[in-house]
């Protein structure tokens, strides 16, 4: 009797984010049945894809016990550069996409360089480049809104067998990231570096190169996500993607990625991004006061990390090394 409750508890805690997701999803659905329509679900996934893509990039960084606070600014700067080039030089959407991704990757490479070569801790580096990136972008645009050509919006509306383009890109990113993390030498070495950087060095892993690459990947994802997001909006202003890094970190952490490195996977980040976006849309569907929405979102993120800590405590208890056999407990 008691055994079963313990197992149920463990089961619930081990899947707390999924449980929270389902509970909230059903709740919003009951409150407003339209929320459960295919259209609305597609919308959730589509909206989640932007945060999701950067959350996947963030997962790489968090796995090495690093952090990338600059992804929001990166999304902004890379889109600004792409937008300005598209407008001034009239380059096409595909070229624009390449430019955005290239700028994002370079941005990440700059972070990587400072972190790896100058040995400044990632928090300070990316906090600084957060400010630098947005400052540069705003200086480029003279703080004006950048309007993209109409072709950008039509690019954003592309569908493949009825699936919107952002979702397809998101799926590709997830697949690629999953392959890299689980099936390549580089991916496994990321986990090793995050678990014990000293031991990784001793094992002959080029830790600097591993760390550098995760920031480059994060930058790549930011450039990509920024451009895809713009293709839905058609324009960008000064505050575009501001604070997105926190959504990405929250998404990754909600999916079970540890801020201390070595623990986490791609699907966790995807689940986290979907949860955050589902809550956001659910609140809109239920006509919750605009001012209350961020508060409720905050509370739900808190609940998720809180359950996660309960799970940790529970795991610790279960993993406790026993010295002698525990006498079978009599059911009370």
């Amino acid at each position: 009797m008691k055994r079963r409750t313990i197992n149920l508890r463990t089961l619930l805690l081990n899947n707390s984010t999924i449980v929270l997701f389902i509970v909230l999803f059903v709740y919003f659905g009951i409150q407003s049945p339209r929320f459960l329509s295919l259209e609305s679900i597609t919308n959730i996934v589509k909206q989640a894809s932007f945060t999701g893509i950067i959350a996947v990039g963030m997962t790489f960084v968090l796995l090495t016990a690093g952090i990338d606070l600059s992804v929001g600014s990166n999304m902004y700067l890379s889109s600004v550069v792409a937008g300005l080039l598209m407008r001034q030089l009239g380059i096409g959407v595909v070229e624009g996409l390449l430019v955005a991704v290239a700028v994002g990757t370079l941005y990440g490479a700059f972070n990587a360089f400072v972190i790896v070569r100058l040995k400044i801790i990632p928090f300070m580096v990316t906090l600084s480049t957060l400010v630098i990136g947005r400052g540069l972008g705003t200086a480029f645009t003279q703080s004006q809104q950048v309007d993209f050509p109409q072709s950008m919006l039509s690019f954003g509306q592309i569908q493949l067998v009825g699936i919107p383009m952002p979702i397809i890109v998101f799926a590709l990113v997830i697949a690629a990231a999953w392959v890299i993390l689980t099936r390549t030498q580089f991916g496994r070495q990321i986990y090793a570096v995050g678990n014990d950087p000293e031991a990784a060095k001793k094992a002959g892993i080029r830790t600097n190169w591993v760390i550098a690459r995760v920031y480059i990947i994060s930058g790549f994802c930011a450039g990509l996500a920024g451009f895809i997001l713009i293709s839905q909006l058609g324009r960008l202003d000064r505050s575009f993607a501001e604070g997105r890094e926190f959504d990405a970190i929250a998404a990754a952490v909600l999916g079970g990625t540890s801020l201390f490195g070595g623990v986490g996977n791609v699907f966790g980040a995807v689940l986290g991004a979907l949860l955050i976006q589902m809550v956001q849309l659910g609140l809109v569907f239920n006509n919750v006061n605009l001012y209350l929405q961020p508060m409720i979102k905050g509370v739900i993120i808190f609940l998720a990390i809180f359950f996660d800590s309960l799970r940790d405590a529970n795991m610790k208890k279960l993993k406790r090394r026993f010295i002698r056999p525990v006498e079978t407990q009599t059911p009370s």
Binding site: E198, A203, G262, V263
Partner: peptide, 30 residues
């Protein structure tokens, strides 16, 4: 010097996995 978050096999091979594939697409031969 073991990585506790990984498997025995991965720990043995961490500095050089057996790989299959070609060019840049080399995957761990599990």
């Amino acid at each position: 010097n073991l990585f506790t978050n990984m498997t025995i096999a991965e720990n043995v091979f961490i500095s050089g996995f057996p790989r299959t594939g070609f060019g840049p697409f080399k995957f761990i031969d599990r």
